[in-house]
């Protein structure tokens, strides 16, 4: 299915958010996720189903003032 990951369309096989992160190479990464604008805690990723057209944000620590 095709979803949007950090603003870029991606075709993924995974059906859940946890599996999608693994597929995208972020299984062990320190990241936080939001799906369609809502925060999804790490503990809820395995149960979070993905649907065609979902917008996934994967955020990581970055420089800030």
């Amino acid at each position: 299915m095709r979803i949007e990951v950090n603003g870029t369309p991606r075709d993924i096989a995974a059906a859940t958010l946890a599996d999608a992160l693994a597929e995208l190479g972020w299984a062990e990464a320190r990241v936080a996720t939001a799906l369609n604008g809502d925060f999804v805690p790490a503990a809820a990723r395995a149960a979070q189903a993905l649907r065609e057209g979902d917008r996934l944000e994967v955020l990581a620590p970055m420089q800030g003032g």
Binding site: N6, G7, W26, A29, R30, V31, A32, E57, V58, L59, A60, P61, M62, Q63, G64, G65
Partner: peptide, 19 residues
């Protein structure tokens, strides 16, 4: 130290260990 969150583009993990 103040920090932010941005889309992961490959540098986030190294930055976190630096912080």
């Amino acid at each position: 130290a103040t920090v932010s969150l941005r889309r992961e583009a490959g540098q986030g993990q190294a930055f976190w260990s630096l912080i």
